[in-house]
């Protein structure tokens, strides 16, 4: 009559002697797959200020401004402002996908918790200096 109950007890009993599945994160770092989508890395010198990333962004979290040209002969546009608002960025990877020069790439750094909202506004220097877990293929 109660064989199902007893068999169930057997399953849970055996499980005690199987290896545990819990990982030791954060005591031991968790190795994320290389493609994992984390916060972006910006290569300022590669950027041609084409605004495609800002346009494709489904949440409009990227703000780009161009530097006024000092030398009229200069052809290449230069970045003045490149902000990503991480309050609303959904890490969908579309900005890095459209970038023609791979100036903006994704890293697999997802440990983004901050104690203040203001810290979530990542600006150009921060994004340029961000070198944690850059994907192998995107390293210069």
């Amino acid at each position: 009559m109660a064989t199902g109950l007893l068999k169930g007890l057997g399953v849970t009993f055996q499980e005690m002697f199987r290896p545990k599945v819990t990982t030791k994160y954060p005591d031991e770092p968790y190795v994320f797959p290389n493609r994992l989508r984390g916060i972006q890395k910006l290569y300022v010198e590669k950027c041609i200020v084409c605004h495609q990333c800002a346009n494709i962004c489904p949440t409009q979290c990227i703000t780009i401004k161009e530097k006024p040209k000092t030398d009229p002969a200069q052809k290449k546009k230069e970045l003045a402002v490149f902000d990503i608002n991480f309050e609303i960025c959904i890490l969908c990877d579309l900005c890095t996908e459209v970038c023609p020069t791979e100036a903006i790439v994704m890293t697999s750094n997802v440990e983004l918790a901050e104690t203040s909202r203001a810290d979530l506004h990542k600006d150009l220097p921060w994004l340029e200096a961000n070198n944690t877990n850059v994907r192998e293929v995107n390293k210069p």
């Binding site: 797959p33 290389n34 493609r35 994992l36 989508r37 890490l91 969908c92 990877d93 579309l94 996908e97």
Partner: peptide, 23 residues
Amino acid sequence: AEISGARLTYSYMRIGGVKWDVP
């Protein structure tokens, strides 16, 4: 996560195909 880069919100498919090949 290995193929699409996310664990829940994959955004893996694109119009015309998929974003990534096998990793």
